[in-house]
Design a protein around this nucleic acid. Structure first.
Lengths: 346, 346
DNA sequence: GACAGCGACTAGCACGTGCTAGTTCCATCA
DNA sequence: TGATGGAACTAGCACGTGCTAGTCGCTGTC
């Protein structure tokens, strides 16, 4: 910066003023400083800036690149933070890098607050040792140590069950990947709605390892095989995430079932895959942009007023009806040999 | 850090020694300093550290969270960098945040080098204005401004064509999502191999918008419908990425075709979706861990010796044979009405 | 003509750390 | 006993910036 000042022929302080858009420099000087900065390829040293600055304007974000829904939230955080005058600093949590390591890096950068996306660990210890506000995005429970931002997974599933019941289904099967963190909440929504509508419940648990990259898909395929082994298919199946629903749907189709003629299939998330024309899945949308923006708001709220208590933000979900669900038909007898296919219905 | 020193009853400099594992402190002192640091929740100020330090040990990484293959590379970069004593700093490139913005943030942090993953913009200007080594991971062409790390997409497709030819296929259709950045290279591999093996070539271009999240899947669905409109299906189809291949496969199955009996389908990437049992796609594996490690090595090489010229690193791919490809059968007549299904082959 | 007021600019300190150059203490040895 | 040396520790500067408190010169006012 001193070099730049010498190059323009003014003091370093004036350059500083210009670069942070502070008042007290003439238009002509601003122009010349900006031009010189661009010419010399100068960018201010973020470290020195954060060292000197009274309070940090950085938002630390911990996320897991491997989980398909998190990048969408990360994308949404950038414009939301920028609108409130904050910068974003990312830190990945991977199979070789624990949440604690990711958090420590961000604390070292003196972030004003931490946003932790989709974490499965208890954030209480982290909230205590980091002396900044912590926001959990995903599936935390309300508490007095950190904020929680999540979508209403239970109500979303209820919307799905209502949709299927309205179509005339008398029973709804629910595939439950038991290791899925938000699973318990969504399952409760299913149970509540089935009860309320007087439907026949049918819970199909699929255990597995949440850390495996293909756990959700594999759970759908497993569930489909399990259904195909039954003497009769259900008329409607819900999976609590789109990856599971899509794998379920394709495995069923591959073995001769028709969707939605033979059975309706619905998912949850409105992931990109659900929208493609080869799938066209009825699902529940939880808008990642809203989640990201709400997380930023929650963090900034507590940065600006540290005495406020952490709170829970629950975002509405919306039902997205596509062609994978329809009214049930009268059950038909079907052949069940693997690899064999049903005849054309004409 | 001064607080910490006072708390332990030693000088600040000694605490500094302990925290960066430098020699010159007794074992007992180390223990006490470490304990106090943990108790007070102290972590050194990264900004101040980078300000004082002679040379940076940070590797800046630009990636697009929305692209499904990039997070895997990001994951691999962490252990590779850590093994060479480098820290990783992420910066996202999104629909609201240009590559230039992402790069500027990293330059502000005074990273020792930049790794740009899957970028479609020309990195020459960036390489010039950032006075640090730049590595392009993905599909760049060799040049004298920045390093390029990529996998041998052309040879990978050749492996696929060879595999299909070995199975007895006489012609291979190639679905080409024309807006896909590494597409040109892979298509050349296809053309070369078809030529070499004396097969019947059949190029099926699918235009579209690379920025759309579901472009690849939609391209597969589009290609499938196009194939279904033909009087006769080809016996083998290759798509240059797994998302396209999977959408193609499922759309074909949904319209009554059987894979691999009626036709073989192959993809490229060995994405998690290709491994799931409802898909089980023959594909070409480009190991993201190798790409990430090679990128880190390339960056560190030039950091340690800035006079070296940038170079290109091409990583081998490996064929992964699964059940979506098989020997061709004699073509059978088939009904072509949408939504209708072929009869069981018995 | 003295003086206040204002816009444009500058002086100098402080932020938290790493590093070089010390200083102190104690054991060892001729 | 005094010199030697090494281990353990400390003093103080420098890094690049933001911020407070100025200085300088010009204009308008009585």
């Amino acid at each position: 910066m001193a070099d730049l000042a010498a190059h323009v022929g003014v003091s370093r302080q004036l350059v500083s003023l210009v670069l942070r858009d502070a008042p007290g420099a003439s238009a002509e000087t601003r122009r010349r400083v900006r031009a010189a900065a661009k010419e010399l390829g100068f960018s201010p040293h973020v470290g020195a800036r954060s060292l000197r600055r009274a309070r940090s304007k950085d938002l630390g974000v911990v996320f897991a690149p491997a989980h398909s829904t998190e990048p969408e939230i990360v994308e949404a955080i950038y414009p939301a933070a920028s609108a409130l005058g904050y910068d974003v600093m990312l830190s990945a949590q991977t199979s070789t890098r624990s949440t604690d390591e990711a958090v420590d890096e961000l604390l070292g950068h003196r972030c004003a607050a931490l946003v932790v996306i989709g974490s499965t660990v208890d954030l209480r210890a982290i909230a205590r040792r980091s002396h900044v506000p912590v926001v959990d995005v995903g599936f935390g429970r309300p508490n007095r140590y950190y904020d929680v931002v999540r979508s209403s997974g239970d109500l979303g599933i209820e919307q799905l069950v209502d949709h299927l019941a309205d179509l005339g289904h008398r029973g709804v099967t629910y595939v439950d990947p038991t290791s899925m963190p938000p699973g318990a909440l969504r399952r409760r929504g299913y149970e509540r709605a089935v009860d309320r509508r007087g439907l026949t419940g049918d819970l199909l648990p699929v255990p597995g390892d949440y850390a495996a990259a293909d756990y959700f898909s594999e759970a759908g395929a497993t569930a489909a095989r399990s259904l195909l082994d039954r003497p009769e298919l259900p008329t409607a199946v819900i999976a609590p995430n789109d990856d599971t629903a899509v794998a379920l749907l394709h495995t069923l189709i591959r073995h001769g079932a028709r969707v939605p003629e033979d059975l309706s299939v619905a998912g949850f998330d409105d992931a990109p895959i659900a929208r493609t024309s080869s799938v066209d899945l009825t699902t529940v949308r939880q808008d990642p942009a809203h989640l990201g923006a709400a997380a930023v708001r929650a963090a900034v709220r507590r940065v600006q007023n540290p005495d406020l208590h952490p709170r829970e933000t629950v975002l509405d979900t919306s039902l997205v009806v596509r062609t994978s669900t329809a009214a049930p038909r009268r059950p038909r007898p079907r052949s069940r040999t693997a690899g064999q296919h049903v005849e054309s219905a004409g």
